[in-house]
């Protein structure tokens, strides 16, 4: 189970993006999710993200993420009304508690909690999208350009991970044959059995690490300045997606400065739509962010499109 990346290559359009374009797209989505407070904007963002997830056949994976989010969303919805006393429209007066003082639940705080749980879902969905479209390898190769040594540590660890999981399983089997029953005994008795596994794994891995180091040294590691091998290609699609992301970011910053995408919950709820600008800015942002989704749609259906981008 743990010898496969979470990422699965399906040869889809969004998976073929250059890592810079893909990471910028996810990054801009992330920044916007954290920037917006207007529920309409948050919902719009969530819509785009879900469309993108659907474009990489990821709705099944997204469901798992949705389940993880639900608990946290609930937490956010509960905590906000309980601890925030800034709202004016009080709908429930509760008892007095030692730490929090008099419990009051206000309409504003409930709305804030709801908006924030949408933000939470959006953020978690962005990571779901990220997992679906960015191969870990691509991130490592991008990182190698700036921090080659750290990237090397990371890629070595990534490469070793599946092997080590397997080794752990082998060690477990050997211990079973030597009479260790992992399911018997209290927690306190089982802990040393588990620690013995880690102990063997540690001893063997440390020995192995010297052999790996030797192989690296034999291939001239640490013999001077390194260069960096690049293998990602930049296509027109990457320019388009990057352009869309940057445009969305710029418009969002403008909207934020003008107050279109902000929304004040306290002390009283603001108007959702403050004027035509609110809607125009939102539409531009959604369109700009939909560029990859639209391209993906076209790429799947139109051979001409495929050849051009």
């Amino acid at each position: 189970m743990f010898d496969q990346f979470f990422y699965q290559d399906k040869g889809l359009f969004l998976q073929s993006l250059h890592p810079v374009a893909a990471l910028s797209y996810a990054g801009v989505l992330m920044v916007l999710a954290l920037l917006f407070t207007n529920p309409l904007y948050l919902l719009g963002l969530l819509l785009v993200i879900i469309l993108a997830v659907a474009a990489v056949d990821g709705l099944a994976a997204w469901e798992t993420y949705l389940k993880i989010s639900l608990g946290m969303m609930l937490l956010v919805i509960i905590i906000n009304p309980l601890v925030v006393h800034a709202g004016e429209t009080i709908i429930w007066w509760g008892p007095r508690l030692p730490v929090f003082g008099r419990l009051t639940v206000s309409l504003e705080a409930i709305c804030y909690g709801a908006a924030m749980s949408v933000r939470l879902l959006a953020i978690i969905s962005i990571f779901c999208l990220y997992n679906l479209i960015v191969h870990p390898d691509k991130v490592l190769s991008l990182l190698a350009r700036f921090a080659s040594r750290s990237a090397l540590v990371l890629s070595l660890a990534t490469r070793m991970f599946p092997a080590m999981i397997r080794q752990m399983e082998n060690i477990r089997e050997v211990q079973v044959v030597r009479g260790v029953d992992f399911h018997a005994g209290t927690l306190k008795e089982r802990l040393p059995k588990y620690a013995a596994l880690m102990n063997i794994l540690l001893l063997s891995s440390l020995e192995d690490s010297l052999e790996i180091a030797e192989a690296m040294q034999a291939r001239a590691f640490g013999s001077g300045r390194r260069s960096c091998y690049r293998r990602d290609t930049w296509r027109p699609r990457d320019s388009l997606c990057l352009g869309g992301s940057l445009l969305a970011l710029a418009v969002a910053v403008y909207g934020q400065a003008k107050g279109c995408s902000t929304f004040s919950f306290y002390p009283e709820l603001d108007y959702l739509i403050k004027g035509p600008m609110t809607v125009i800015v939102l539409i531009i942002i959604i369109l700009a962010l939909s560029v990859p989704v639209v391209l993906s749609w076209g790429w799947q259906r139109c051979p001409y499109f495929k050849a051009k981008i």
Binding site: D137, L152, I212, M216, R219, G222, S223, S227, Y229, R231
Partner: peptide, 17 residues
């Protein structure tokens, strides 16, 4: 030491600069 075949072959070349 690397995660992909291509990067593995390039590793030594990168070290040579």
């Amino acid at each position: 030491v690397m995660t992909s075949v291509e990067a593995e072959i390039a590793f030594g070349l990168e070290n040579l600069g």
